[in-house]
């Protein structure tokens, strides 16, 4: 991950601030920075979203293509994730530098979508055993300002909400050969149910307390972090500890509690924003990349 070099005095300053529940930008330990979400930014995709939290900027594009279902699950479609850490985010990602981080994030995304309830994969099936929808979710990291996992999970959820998969029917001829028919109306599409898609909350341990949504400077002070993926109902789907340090078992339990609390609020506000954006329809003023 991109890193900043901090002096000992700066680290002590951040540490003391966190102990008093006051971070350098005035937030409390459980507050997120302002999150900006915009969907449908790229017109060539089936669904897209752009999320900006502070200096972290992520663009997600979803493309739905037809493919053959996996042999172990013939009645389900599936998702494929690819995370590209481009050199725009930080010069460290030039060439193959960002590949390791990209694979780590992609693996985390695979894990959180691994269970049955996160995404209804049977709705992606066209013909059991032969055709299904494969959703290629491509994440592009434009700017790295700390807290990548949360931003990417919010962006993936918004992009999946925005995805409009065309409705297809498979017709069988008398001879037995199959034909795929696409409906004539370009606006006749299927939406995905993203109610149970989880969001990742990163809790970084600084001193004796933990903070949510750490900036790059705070990440440099933190030796260990816990990533928790929680659904809107409060179910924990995945948990992982990252970082060089170790965590006290008691603080892990506290972090799980905080993570569930924060995630509930996050899901609620995200759902509100997405439905609000949807309701504006064509009248919505597109902001895009120029501000």
């Amino acid at each position: 991950m991109a890193s900043v070099v901090l002096s000992e005095a700066e680290k002590v300053y951040i540490l003391h601030g966190v102990q008093d529940d006051l971070r350098t930008d005035g937030r409390g330990c459980e507050d997120y920075r302002g999150i900006e979400v915009e969907t449908d930014v790229v017109s060539n995709t089936t669904g897209s979203a752009r999320v900006k939290i502070g200096h972290t900027d992520v663009l997600v594009g979803v493309k739905a293509e037809m493919g053959t279902p996996k042999l172990e699950h013939p009645k389900e479609g599936y998702l494929e994730f690819f995370v590209d850490c481009s050199a725009n985010a930080t010069p460290e990602f030039e060439g193959r530098g960002g590949e390791e981080l990209g694979t780590e994030i992609a693996n985390m995304l695979y894990k959180i979508f691994d269970n049955k309830s996160s995404m209804d994969r049977e709705s992606l099936c066209i013909l059991p055993g032969e055709h299904c929808w494969v959703l290629y979710v491509d994440v592009l990291l434009l700017e790295c300002g700390g807290n990548l996992f949360d931003t990417i999970s919010i962006a993936v959820k918004s992009a999946l909400f925005n995805t409009r998969i065309p409705k297809v029917r498979v017709l069988e001829d008398d001879e037995g050969s199959k034909e795929i028919e696409l409906s004539d109306d370009p606006y006749d599409c299927m939406r995905l149910n993203v109610e149970h898609v989880p969001c990742i909350v990163t809790l970084s341990r600084i001193g004796h307390r933990h903070v949510v949504d750490a900036t790059l400077q705070e990440e440099a002070c933190s030796l260990a972090s816990l990533l928790i993926s929680v659904t809107s109902k409060g179910t924990l789907t995945c948990m992982r500890k990252i970082g060089k340090g170790s965590l006290d078992p008691e603080s892990i339990f506290e972090m799980i509690e905080t993570g569930k609390r924060v995630a509930k609020f996050l899901h609620l506000s995200l759902q509100n924003v997405l439905s609000q954006e949807e309701s504006l329809g064509k009248k919505r003023h597109k902001i895009g990349f120029l501000r």
């Binding site: 269970n115 924990l236 995945c238 992982r240 965590l247 006290d248 078992p249 892990i252 339990f253």
Partner: peptide
Amino acid sequence: LPALNQVSGLLCSGEWEGDTSVAAVRMCM
């Protein structure tokens, strides 16, 4: 780390409702 009682690695997947995750961590320890 048993003598210092610190957790150095944690990874879980699947669905964990309510307090089952806490019970699972304790059992692993």
